[in-house]
Structures are given as structure tokens and as C-alpha cells.
Design a protein around this nucleic acid. Structure first.
Lengths: 202, 202
DNA sequence: TCTTGATTTGACCATCTGGTCAAACTCACG
DNA sequence: CGTGAGTTTGACCAGATGGTCAAATCAAGA
């Protein structure tokens, strides 16, 4: 374990390589299903070498999750009260859909954690996430009060957006098994746009 | 392992007890995260005793999944071409929502499997499930052709229903972290009904 | 070049885990 | 009540897994 100096070039590279490998493995097999050997192999390092950069499997997982939570919530963060309500919401949805397409591993990493009761990020959910969602639903509610979008339960509106968009990443096998050759991300954007336009147009 | 006679009273009871325990453990920790000892403890049996009734951990998991797949797909199966289109679809959605509320372990069992690439039920997805969905989307398409519901991509319509309804079971921790005391199943039925009524009314 | 800290590794360990087995026990029924 | 099949268990095993450690190797600044 290096002292707490500025990270060397090698440290920077190897930490990044490890996190990338860990993302692959954890997202595909969950925390318990992933093995340190697997991550090390994926990263092209020996196991002891990997454990030189992170003290434990748990530490890698935690570093990954906390590092990605910000990225994951950025689109919701960007929801802007001063924009046009419907366009803001639709833009949020499209951004989430793009993330499902471009960052499916990240989506599955969180899905794995959540479906098993979020043992490692429960705190972040009821603090950071709840705070962000409360903030944004307040905006939604104000828009509804001003009759700029139709009135619906704001929390369930957020849940529905998460569910719909992340479904394509989290349950990709199922979607592909049913769609066959058709690219899910061909029809999805139009479908969800139609859906939320109809739902929210006052 | 008993011979292939008719199952004794004890066999019947213990198999059921084991499957119930396995449902608890597998749905909470995934296949890899569950241990045979855990399932045995939950079932109130010793590990060798448990393995007397099922030859392996894998066998228990398979028995569970294949036994529950039918239950899981029953609501979609019940979608009836001869009923009123919108009411049929809304009834399907409400049934799915009830299953999320009443059978969350079953939902998470499948979610765990799917999010990790469905290594153990991939076949059933591309055969049984695909067949059922193809059948039912054909009905939806006919309804759309007859202009009895609005035209949307039928597969994405199905996906959206799955995503929305199962979200409440699969990601229950997250929903609860955000809703706090509020019961998710208080607001959800009205929300999803509104959503699909607006989407599908021609 | 030399030195010192950073990096890498082979060997190793304790624990966990899925699974086996022979022996013991229980139950239903003739 | 005796008997044979059905049931249960303690002891055990092999392989996997997370993690350690001392020794070897490397890299960069003096």
C-alpha cells in the first residue's frame, strides 16, 4: 500500500484499470458472484498486485459505486426549473435512455445492488438520493400547480422514468430474447416520448 | 434419494418447505450469493438432509424457477382478445401490480436471474416467453389496426408494463427509501392506470 | 550509478462452500 | 412387533476464495 502521497502515474493507471475490470465483473455477476481472481485476470494483474491497490474486494466495490453514483444521478440533477417543463422532462428521459444504451454495465451494477436490498448503499439512498429526488419532485409539483404539466403523483412519475429507461439495460437479455434482431434503442425513444407527452400534456 | 414411487407425506412436506426457504434465500441474494447451508437453516433441515431431497443447489434453483415461470406469466396469458381492449390491458397491469405487491420474492428471483444475463433460463426466454409475447402482441396489433387502442410499438408497450409494475418489487428498497412512510401501492395503481389510459385511448 | 521507495509476485493460509457417505434412526405396514 | 424402505445426521472431503507476506524487481531522483 503506497503512502498517502500524490498518486504516481502507475497508481493512477492501475486504479483505473482495476475499476474498469471490476465494473465488468461486478455488473455481470453481482458482488457475491464476482471473485477477486476474476477481476484481477480481467485487469491483467496478479491477485496480490490488485490487492496492493485496494485493500479488499469490498473496497473495490465501494469505490466503484460511490464513484459512479454521481454520474448516475447527473441527468436528474440537470433538470432545470427554468426550462420548459415538458421539454425538460423529455430531455431527462432521453438522457436516461442514452445512458441505458451507452452505460449498461453501470445500470446493472446498481440493479444488482438494489435488487438484493442495497446492503452497501442503503445510506446513500435515504440521504443523497432522497434529497435529490425531493428537490426535483418539488419542481415537478410546482409545474403542476402552475398547470404547465398534468397533475400526477410526482414520485411515481420519477419511478416510472427510472423503471422504463433502466429496464433496457438491466433486463437486456430478456428484451433481446423477445425483440430478436430489432435494436431496442430504435423503437424505445419514440415510445417513451409518446408515452410521457400524452401523460403530461395538461 | 427416494425411488421414483409416489412421494410420501414427508417428501411432499419437505420439498415444499425447501422450495419456500430457497425462494427466500435466492431472491434475497441471487444464485451465487445463496448458500446451501443458508437454505437448509431457513428450511429447518440439515444440509445433508436437504441434499437428500434435491441433488444439488442448482437443482433447487431450477425447480424453483421452472415452477414459478408459469405463475409469473399467467396474467399475460389471461389477456383475452375478445374482451374490451383497454379494459383487458388495464386489468393485466393491475394484476401485475398486485403480483409485485403480493409476490415480491418471486419478482426478485427472476430479476436476479435476468440482470445477470439469465444464465439458467435463457432458453425459456427465447422459446416459451417469446412465443407468449408474440402471441399477445399480435392481439395488441390487431386492436390497433381496428383503431380500438392508439397505435404504439406493441413490444415496447409490453416492456413498459413489465418495467413499471415489477420496479416496485425489484427495487423496493429504493422506492421505500424515497417514499418513506408512504405505501408505494397506494399511489401506484392510480398512476399507472392514468398513464396507460392516456397512452392507449385512441 | 546508486539508493530508496514503489511495484510485483509465488507461495501460502484460513475459511467457506457444495457435496458425499456410512451409520443411525424412524415410520408404515404385514 | 419385526422388517425393510424411507429419513436424518455427524464427520468428512476437495476445491474455491479472500487475503497475507516476505522476497524479488522496478523506477526515478540525487
Amino acid at each position: 500500500m503506497p503512502k498517502d502521497r500524490a498518486p504516481t502515474r502507475i497508481q493512477q493507471k492501475n486504479r483505473a484499470v482495476i475499476l474498469e475490470a471490476a465494473l465488468n465483473v461486478f455488473s455481470a455477476h453481482g458482488f457475491r458472484g464476482a471473485t477477486v481472481d476474476q477481476i484481477a485476470a480481467e485487469a491483467g494483474l496478479s491477485k496480490p498486485n490488485l490487492l496492493y491497490y485496494f485493500p479488499s474486494k469490498e473496497a473495490i466495490h465501494t469505490a466503484l459505486l460511490s464513484g459512479l453514483l454521481e454520474v448516475w444521478l447527473a441527468p436528474l440533477h440537470a433538470l432545470n426549473e427554468n426550462g420548459d417543463p415538458l421539454e425538460e422532462i423529455l430531455a431527462y428521459i432521453q438522457r436516461k435512455l442514452e445512458m441505458s444504451r451507452d452505460l449498461p454495465r453501470e445500470s446493472r451494477l446498481f440493479a444488482n445492488e438494489l435488487v438484493q436490498g442495497a446492503p452497501r448503499i442503503h445510506d446513500a439512498l435515504s440521504t443523497d438520493l432522497k434529497k435529490l429526488v425531493d428537490e426535483k419532485t418539488a419542481i415537478l409539483t410546482r409545474w403542476m400547480d402552475q398547470e404547465r404539466i398534468a397533475r400526477v403523483h410526482p414520485y411515481h412519475l420519477i419511478f416510472s422514468i427510472w423503471a422504463l429507461t433502466q429496464h433496457y439495460a438491466d433486463f437486456e437479455v430478456q428484451v433481446r430474447a423477445i425483440l430478436g434482431d430489432e435494436d431496442p434503442f430504435e423503437g424505445a425513444p419514440l415510445f417513451v416520448e409518446t408515452l410521457y407527452r400524452k401523460l403530461l400534456t395538461p
